[in-house]
């Protein structure tokens, strides 16, 4: 008990707040964008999960959703956008092209967006149904609550290694 108890409880509360106020940056490139539109639309309504508001500036977003095929030409742009986002940040690969390249295995497509940035949740499907995406979003929220996001784990590692002593971390 003592300070550690309070800091870990505080971290829980912070993560709880984070998971219900995801500000997404949709990096829409391809067909999956059509399903992404449906996700915003009246029927599936992603607003129910506190993640409806798209920010078209990476500096204001903390969730990068990669919607569609990433080509080699697109890679540097994706990487730059990821680097421009403030931490903590999370990423979702929406659709099989963003996860593995799908059935596009050729000279121009990148075999999965994780070749150039870390991904937290992969949603398969070509394109995934909106229900699947909502499921993926809930999985990401669990991950955030448990501190399992890629950036959260890295911060924890750095904290344990003696860096970033001032930060409150689980």
């Amino acid at each position: 008990m003592g300070l550690e108890f309070y800091t870990s409880k505080l971290a829980d509360a912070v993560n709880w707040a984070r998971k219900y106020s995801l500000f997404q940056y949709p990096f829409v490139t391809a067909c999956c964008g059509m399903e992404f539109m449906a996700l915003w639309g009246p029927k599936y309504d992603v607003a129910r999960f506190g993640a409806e508001f798209p920010r078209f500036s990476p500096r204001q977003a903390d969730l990068l959703i990669i919607v569609g095929t990433i080509t080699e030409r697109q890679g540097p742009i994706l990487r730059r956008i990821y680097e421009q986002m403030c931490e903590p940040k999370w990423t979702i690969a929406f659709g099989v092209c963003a996860s593995t390249g799908g059935f596009y295995q050729n000279y121009s497509t990148m075999p999965g967006a994780d070749q150039c940035i870390p991904i937290d949740v992969y949603i398969p499907g070509c394109p995934p149904r909106p229900e699947q995406v909502l499921d993926g979003l809930i999985m990401l929220q669990d991950k955030i609550q448990n501190g399992q996001g890629f950036v959260q784990r890295r911060e924890k590692r750095e904290h344990d290694a003696g860096k970033n002593k001032l930060k409150v971390l689980p």
Binding site: T29, A30, T71, R73, Q74, I77, N106, Y107, S108
Partner: peptide, 11 residues
């Protein structure tokens, strides 16, 4: 253009 070149012809 060309940021979504998925090589339809080659595939």
């Amino acid at each position: 253009v060309g940021y979504l070149h998925r090589c339809f012809e080659k595939e």
